[in-house]
Amino acid sequence: MKVEGKHQIDAPRTRVYEALINPEVLQRTIPGCERLEKTGEDTYAATIRAGVGAIKGVFNGTVKLQDLRAPEHFRMVVEGKGSPGFLKGSGDLDLEDAGEGTTVNYTGDVQVGGTIASVGQRMIQSTVKMMASQFFTALTTEAKTETSEPPPKHGFFRTALRWFSGWLKGLFGR
């Protein structure tokens, strides 16, 4: 099944790219992701509890990132197996500048098999769309909070230290 779409993210392209390939961010943004561990160079093991409404399943699998060309492109290869069936797919993500923000274009091919494919076929596409939209909404929040973060903490400490040492010098230099 072909999956494609486009999402607008209100953050600069480099930041969006960093978030998209950062396993910690991905664990927080992939809907139902319970575990994402690095197992090799750009390779991760994942446990995802995916589902909508009453229908739920746990998938275990691997995620591989390929063709990394920051900040414009990468390819994601996913393979997973779980109680309701299996899924295998790959997708290309392309990032474009769009004014202040970024447009993420994704296109891919997903194969789903097992029980979920035989009885849930009519809902697979909607489920994928729904999860993609949840993912990008969460990612937008992540990318935005990073921009509005206060300046790095060491800056504050350095300023405080400088002020303190100046005060000490003043005290003893007298």
């Binding site: 009453a54 229908i55 739920k56 399943g57 309701p84 029980t115 849930g120």
Partner: peptide
Amino acid sequence: SKILAGGHSLIPAMKLRLAQP
């Protein structure tokens, strides 16, 4: 927990273990 009424959507999903309340 799941509420069961007629069960014509829930029970088939449970039999296929797509739902496991």
